[in-house]
């Protein structure tokens, strides 16, 4: 039972981060331009979601997170397309600037719990947990009893539903003309321009979409863990990349739909790997080094293969 609970918890975490992996997939694999805004836009999704959730609108809060991420993406895109600044630097600039924004959204503090003050019957202020989509969903499932009452199960089910909808919507979108134009922009921008499409616009749309997804992920995590924290974003890009890469190893290069599913699946698998690492008593702070190593190995192996290096074990890579 403990094992199953651990697995469910890992899958839930993976699903919560899946939109972020999808966002990273959009920039890295579709636009083929690294976007470092991710570390900032994840947190902006979190903080904006927290603020709106506390105000009492948990569903609206998730859409607000989407919008905030899109705006962050728009900033990066404008720096890229209008000012022609290096894409990597654009992301760093926006992510750095966002730190201040996020701080301000949290009301000048570095973390915020999803609770609000209400007056009790005696007229004293007390803290009350703000409603979240997970809380409402839980209230819906609780009467069923048994495993349904398990919070981790509830988180897994609701997030799974949300991620499935996202994957389907993205899968449809990338086969419409605007979506295909975004894919073309990453693949061969000149060809897109030759097809009388404003490639600056499609690139902007792509970056906005990616960061909206990342921020949405931040919003989901915020509602699930019931707090927002400014430091949650650091290293997010590397984790997203690790998920995308794990997904690619499994799914291979078999078109867009498989790619989207693999990215989301990669996020789940990545969390399971982390869970395993914890269970062999690796400290939780080893996450980032582990993620970094996964990315380096995954990016490095194809290159080593090309140069004919032999991997240990005598097998030619």
């Amino acid at each position: 039972m403990v094992l199953i609970n651990m697995l469910i918890s890992a899958i839930s975490q993976g699903l919560l981060y899946a939109p972020m992996a999808l966002g990273v997939f959009v920039t890295f694999k579709i636009l083929k331009t690294p976007d470092l805004t991710v570390d900032g836009s994840f947190v902006v999704g979190m903080t904006v979601c927290a603020a709106v959730t506390i105000a009492g609108y948990p569903v609206l809060a998730l859409f607000a997170a989407l919008a905030a991420g899109a705006i962050a993406g728009l900033c990066t895109a404008l720096l890229q397309t209008r000012l022609k600044i290096e894409p990597i630097l654009c992301g760093i600039l926006v992510a750095t600037g966002l730190y201040t924004v996020n701080y301000a959204v949290l009301g000048g503090q570095s973390n915020l719990y999803l609770q609000r003050q209400v007056m009790n019957a005696a007229g004293y202020p007390v803290n009350q947990a703000a409603d979240t989509v997970y809380k409402s969903f839980g209230q819906l499932l609780n009467p069923l009893g048994g495993q349904w009452k398990n919070t981790n199960t509830q988180v897994m089910l609701l997030t799974l539903g949300i991620v499935l909808v996202l994957v389907v919507l993205l899968g449809i979108f990338f086969f419409t003309r605007p979506g295909m134009a975004i894919r073309g922009t990453g693949d061969n921008e000149e060809m897109v321009r030759s097809s009388s499409i404003n490639a600056d616009l499609t690139r902007t749309a792509g970056i906005m979409l990616a960061n909206a997804l990342v921020a949405f992920s931040g919003g989901l995590l915020c509602q699930q863990q019931r707090y927002a924290d400014l430091n949650c974003g650091s290293g997010m890009l590397v984790m997203g990349l690790a998920s995308v890469i794990i997904g690619q190893v499994l799914g291979g290069n078999r078109g867009l739909i498989v790619g989207l599913i693999s990215a989301a699946g990669g996020s789940i698998l990545y969390r399971i790997v982390l869970q395993l690492a914890y269970s062999i008593d690796l400290p939780s702070y080893s996450v980032k080094l582990l993620s970094t190593l996964i990315v380096i190995v995954a990016l490095g192996v194809p290159l080593l293969k090309k140069h004919g290096f032999k991997l240990p074990g005598g097998k030619k890579a």
Partner: peptide, 18 residues
């Protein structure tokens, strides 16, 4: 230069045609 390698022939033509 004229074609997008990761998209299918059909998708390339469609972008040009539409």
């Amino acid at each position: 230069r004229g074609t997008a390698p990761d998209m299918t022939i059909e998708e390339n033509l469609a972008l040009a045609y539409t």
